[in-house]
């Protein structure tokens, strides 16, 4: 855990405040095609106002709690389990998320087979512990799973997945 933990509420409140204000003003541009008292801008404005109000409450709650913690001398140097292991093990969660996002963007340009095989290989490597990493089996499984699933989806469920590079 790092210092960010104590600021989660404050940061998320600030983000939501910005979003709700932007949404409120963006709704001004919405006009119904027919004349109505309750138009398409009503719900967004309502949601924006409620979000703004609750976010301010969350902001105040978060700041107050942090002030109380600071007064008690608990804020800096929080206790927590330091992450262990090598670089991949310590950052496996963020790296996995990054890999998945990259995979979704590569899905069409690279094609299902190439993108999936690459993703699986890298994700196996990131998720396994250092002493579990065996690159050859990982590569074989990654290629086999993507090829087999491609075939099954095509033949059994008639899903035509993007071919990309191999097309």
């Amino acid at each position: 855990m790092n210092a960010l933990t104590h600021w989660k509420d404050v940061i998320s409140a600030l983000v939501l405040i910005v979003v709700s204000i932007a949404m409120f003003f963006a709704s001004n541009g919405l006009e119904a095609k027919t004349r109505m008292d309750i138009g398409p801008d009503f719900m967004p404005k309502l949601v924006a106002v409620l979000t703004l109000a609750l976010s301010v409450v969350l902001l105040v709650q978060g700041l107050r709690r942090n002030r109380a913690l600071r007064a008690a001398g608990k804020l800096p140097g929080q206790a927590g389990v330091p992450r262990q292991g090598d670089f991949l093990e310590r950052h496996a969660d963020w790296l996995s998320l990054l890999l998945i996002v990259a995979y979704t963007f590569a899905f069409e340009p690279l094609g299902y087979l190439v993108a999936t095989a690459c993703y699986l290989f890298l994700q196996f490597t990131v998720m396994a512990k250092a002493d579990e990493r065996r690159y050859l089996p990982f590569a074989v499984v990654a290629v086999a799973v993507s090829a087999l699933s491609y075939y099954v989806f095509l033949r059994l469920f008639y899903v035509f997945l993007p071919v990309g590079l191999l097309g």
Binding site: Y103, T116, Y119
Partner: peptide, 11 residues
């Protein structure tokens, strides 16, 4: 072994 199963679920 979750490192095999979970990534395949994502795909």
């Amino acid at each position: 072994k979750k490192y095999y199963l979970f990534p395949i679920i994502v795909a």
